[in-house]
């Protein structure tokens, strides 16, 4: 069995099953947690609290102006690589093809050149963010292995993807195998590390906004 056959067969199956089980484990583990009872009367009725939750999803997408000088660069770089990942994932023709195979949804892909440019910008942003993490004294102190593993797990698929598009250092088959294996590593790690924010970020903001609204705080 070649590396590519393993990546496209057993590797993909095992990674998918771990990903599915891990996601349900994390989500149900969180949903079923006990929560503190709020004894104080709610400041706003239920519909307003829902609205507060919904509004917070958007208001938390950009830091408050006061914090811009301190966090602006990091936030901007994070947006760059997140948007880059979005373009790569939902604009790359092979990626759309996988989505089509699983869910039956399809849309026109972007030219390979656009994906390569997006990949290059994303890689640059990721490297700058790592440099920032390593050089910023507070950020470095706060960083745990999860942060570095999550960074590497995101970096590798983009890096192997850009190598694959140019068939630079190895054959297409080898690079494709490495690319698929790196994505499988991401699928296995995602439910168990900080990358889980992919599925929790908006729900987390909503709960925060809902609770703030209940207490009458600004959302």
């Amino acid at each position: 069995m070649t590396l590519l056959s393993f990546a496209r067969g057993p590797g993909m199956q095992v990674a998918s099953l771990i990903f599915i089980a891990g996601m349900f484990w994390r989500l149900f583990g969180i949903f079923l947690l006990r929560r503190r009872v709020a004894h104080a009367a709610a400041r706003h009725p239920f519909p307003i609290r829902l609205l507060g939750g919904a509004v917070t999803i958007f208001t938390r997408t950009i830091p408050r102006r006061t914090f811009w000088p301190r966090v602006g660069a990091g936030v901007a770089l994070s947006y760059v690589f997140h948007v880059g990942l979005f373009i790569i994932l939902f604009g790359g023709a092979p990626h759309i093809l996988i989505i089509h195979e699983i869910f039956g949804l399809s849309w026109p892909g972007l030219p390979r050149g656009v994906i390569v440019i997006a990949s290059g910008i994303t890689l640059a942003a990721l490297i700058l963010l790592l440099v920032r993490r390593l050089t910023h004294p507070v950020l470095r102190l706060l960083s745990k292995p999860d942060d570095y593993i999550s960074w590497a797990i995101v970096f590798l698929p983009v890096a192997t993807g850009i190598l694959l598009s140019g068939e630079t250092i190895a054959s297409y088959g080898t690079l494709l195998a490495l690319h698929i294996l790196s994505i499988e590593a991401l699928m296995i790690w995602l439910p168990f590390g900080k990358l889980m924010h992919v599925s929790l970020v908006f729900a987390g903001r909503f709960v925060l906004g809902y609770n703030f609204s209940r207490k009458g705080a600004a959302t």
Binding site: A7, R8, G9, M12, Q13, S16, L17, I18, I20, A21, G22, M23, F24, W25, R26, L27, F28, G29, I30, F31, L32, L33, P94, H95, L97, I98, E101, I102, I180
Partner: peptide, 26 residues
């Protein structure tokens, strides 16, 4: 770009396993 992913049955078993583990943890 594709390959042989798990079938819906295996995916369902994986999801059920995750639900049981998550519920037990909670």
């Amino acid at each position: 770009a594709g390959g042989t992913g798990p079938g819906w049955r295996d995916a369902g078993i994986a999801a059920a396993t995750g639900i049981v583990l998550g519920s037990a943890a909670a």
